[in-house]
């Protein structure tokens, strides 16, 4: 662990536009965003009675940005970054995660989840706890289990660390449902859930996230060579622009078409958004009694007496 710059500050990147493509309508005031998000993290923790946080640091830009923001909010010594590679994860992912830890001077921990995942699916021809039937499970199932094992590790470590799990999912992936329910989306609160990927890149560049992390192709790294954009079939700037006009600016299909978005892409993205609605909401409860949580029992999450004492 290095003490390079222990205040959670990196060097802002002056030529951000050279690092990534930013659709002009998605450009935000990064200083206001940074300020609001740092306050948000500090408030969420304080109101819950905590002064520490932890997160899964993948080596990608989303968790790197959240690590930088959290370090600024509560100080790097109150932040635990947990690196959780699987045996097929790209070695570059761990290298990049270490780069963030060094830059921030925060606490870190490495948990290899291979034994947990292989323990269920089996390995080298030997069945695991899941039995014969899951040995040849599709990459999607394996990826989901990895994401959920990471969640288990984080929530277990959160007890020993005495901190809350900080979420690292962005608005783009949330809207199209490119997340694992109760896996990577599980957290106590999520600072970047209302930032599109393009905006994550913008804030990351402004706050000093190391350049190789900003520059590389986003990947869930659930299997070798996987990248988000290949899997999805469109680039983040395209997708972000479409989601922005469709959702934030309420443009109709005809209007989107007139703006040059291809009909089939619009259809496909609309379907992704609609079919993933369930991932963005708490599970529904059947209304029976006079007052039902989430229906007509409506209290702020943080109210007098709600904090851990």
């Amino acid at each position: 662990m290095s003490a390079a710059s222990g205040d959670g500050q990196g060097e802002p990147n002056q030529d951000a536009d050279r690092l990534f493509e930013l659709p002009p309508e998605l450009a935000i005031d990064t200083e206001i965003a940074r300020r609001v998000l740092v306050d948000f993290i500090r408030n969420q923790l304080r109101q819950a009675g905590f002064s520490r946080g932890l997160l899964g640091l993948s080596g990608g830009i989303d968790s790197a940005l959240v690590a930088f923001l959290t370090a600024q909010a509560i100080g790097p010594k109150n932040l635990l970054c947990v690196l959780m590679p699987y045996r097929t994860s790209s070695p570059e992912s761990v290298e990049h995660a270490r780069l963030v830890v060094e830059r921030l001077g925060c606490e870190s921990d490495l948990v290899d989840i291979s034994a947990m995942v292989d323990g269920y699916f089996g390995r080298d021809g030997n069945p695991g706890a899941g039995g014969e039937a899951v040995r040849e499970a599709a990459p999607l199932r394996r990826g989901n289990l990895m994401a959920r094992e990471r969640m288990c590790v984080l929530y277990d470590r959160s007890v020993a660390w005495g901190g809350l799990v900080v979420g690292t999912g962005n608005k783009t992936e949330s809207l199209i449902g490119y997340t694992t329910l109760f896996g990577d989306s599980a957290c106590a609160f999520n600072p970047i859930g209302d930032l599109y990927k393009s905006q994550v890149r913008q804030v990351a560049a402004a706050i000093g996230v190391p350049e190789p992390i900003i520059r590389k192709a986003p990947s869930a790294d659930l299997w070798p060579g996987q990248t988000d954009e290949v899997e999805a079939g469109f680039t983040y700037p395209e997708l972000d622009r479409l989601l922005f006009w469709m959702i934030d600016k309420r443009r109709t299909d005809d209007e989107l078409s007139a703006m040059g978005f291809p009909g089939p892409t619009v259809e496909r993205v609309k379907r992704l958004v609609a079919t993933s609605e369930f991932k963005r909401q708490v599970p529904p409860v059947a209304k029976l009694g006079p007052r039902t949580t989430g229906v007509d029992y409506l209290y702020p999450r943080r109210r007098p007496g709600s904090a851990r004492t």
């Binding site: 309508e25 450009a27 935000i28 005031d29 200083e31 206001i32 965003a33 609001v36």
Partner: peptide, 13 residues
């Protein structure tokens, strides 16, 4: 409540 964060606005908000 602050919202509509965008670089096009005079004060960024």
């Amino acid at each position: 409540p602050g919202r509509d964060l965008a670089a096009i606005h005079e004060v960024g908000l």
